[in-house]
Write a protein that binds this DNA or RNA. Structure first.
Lengths: 224, 224
DNA sequence: GGTTGTATGACAGTTGCGTGACAAAACCGT
DNA sequence: ACGGTTTTGTCACGCAACTGTCATACAACC
């Protein structure tokens, strides 16, 4: 799910935008001032930023410039003013798009998508799931323990990814058989064996597993 | 100087746009129909395409889709209609921006710049991809190892570029077959053979590949 | 202490990969 | 069009790694 940060001082409009975007399936958060927004973006970057031009304190143009300095996040200006001069200035400052209020939420959403399509191509970030000092990159097909690559086999890798994807939740042997092996039926012991082998590789003390733990009678889970 | 292609059937508007853009410093060319525009873009790609939605014959949406299929060129829709439905549809079809006629040329120009900034971020750095002492120039069609040119065949080159473009990620044989050969189906061993040949040329010790590595059961990836 | 559920080591069959050989196809200069 | 050269795809073989099964040992629960 993609996150959107809305920087807008008018509480009513901000709330309306946030609700509408949430409805469109975005993870949302809002800020009432540029300063607050910049801080939030620095702390926990969203995938898109919507920013109003008229903000108290630091104005929208400056806000855009600073966002742009830190980050390559796609920025959309949402402003009441439709003056060409403002539009040009905002785009020059580093904004990617400029829409005039009031804006149809469907249009905004489509513009955000179009923008992310472009932005994604740049970064293509490789996802990394972290469990303590254990790192799993499903894309890279790589597992690391304390930064060192751990050679795992395909089945072990799939199993680990499956567990990682549902981190913290128990998965029964049946579920694992189904998802990793595609078996509808089969010997559940098979899972045990592979879990064991995986532990040898990823746990510091395979006898006392910290991450890949057994829940007697239920199955296995991966914890942080 | 950057080139802009304007696809617009109304002669007066097209001419006005072309003149105005030329004035802004763009190298311009125009097309009166989608078919003509597609042909021109294929023959000599412009850096931006402006397209009207209402075109005789192939309509704007289809035109966008076809442009997008060939190419990653930034596309801006310039339309008289400001209906949300049209905007969303155009963006979904692959357009990057949508402006409503009449449009201030300064705004249009700023939007084009903003768009190119994004597009460039994705494309320009692709000029030389470096993996240790291995350099790949997709544009120049050249591969170098420790500064020395390495003669690779076309297929090897495509394969290498495909892997380089997704550096650090595993690509399955299926994916490679699809992307390099365009096969939807076929013998996956074909990939092995070419990977092997490529290794002979680009790896210091082809037996222990450092860059073009195998992930048993998953595929291949190129690492730094 | 008995029962149930889990860990693990060994093993044989299987799979996946690298490679060299070869023929077909594409390419290229004449 | 022709002949030589390079490139491409197919195949078969061998090796190494992986997989699933089983038997046994161990731990948890009642």
């Amino acid at each position: 799910m993609t996150g959107v940060l809305v920087i807008e001082d008018d509480d009513r409009i901000r709330l309306a935008l946030l609700l509408a975007l949430e409805d469109e399936g975005y993870r949302v958060r809002g800020a009432g001032t540029a300063e607050e927004g910049l801080l939030m973006q620095r702390r926990e970057p969203a995938d898109n930023v919507l920013v109003d031009l008229m903000l108290p304190g630091l104005d929208g143009f400056e806000c855009i410039r600073r966002l742009r300095r830190d980050d390559d996040v796609p920025i959309v200006v949402v402003s009441a003013r439709d003056d060409t001069h403002d539009i040009v200035a905002a785009l020059e400052a580093g904004a990617d798009d400029y829409v005039v209020k009031p804006v149809a939420i469907k249009e905004l959403s489509a513009r955000l998508r179009a923008l992310r399509r472009r932005a994604r191509a740049t970064h293509d970030p490789v996802q990394v799931l972290t469990f303590g000092r254990l790192e799993i990159s499903p894309d890279a097909g790589e597992v690391r323990r304390a930064g060192r690559p751990v050679p795992v086999t395909r089945t072990e890798f799939r199993l680990l990814c499956e567990l990682a994807e549902h981190a913290g939740r128990v998965l029964s042997r049946q579920q694992l058989l189904q998802r990793v092996w595609g078996y509808d039926t089969g010997d559940e012991r098979l899972v045990d064996v592979h879990v064991g082998r995986l532990r040898q590789k990823i746990e510091d003390d395979p006898g006392n597993p910290r991450h890949l733990v057994t829940l007697r009678g239920l199955g296995y889970k991966l914890t942080r």
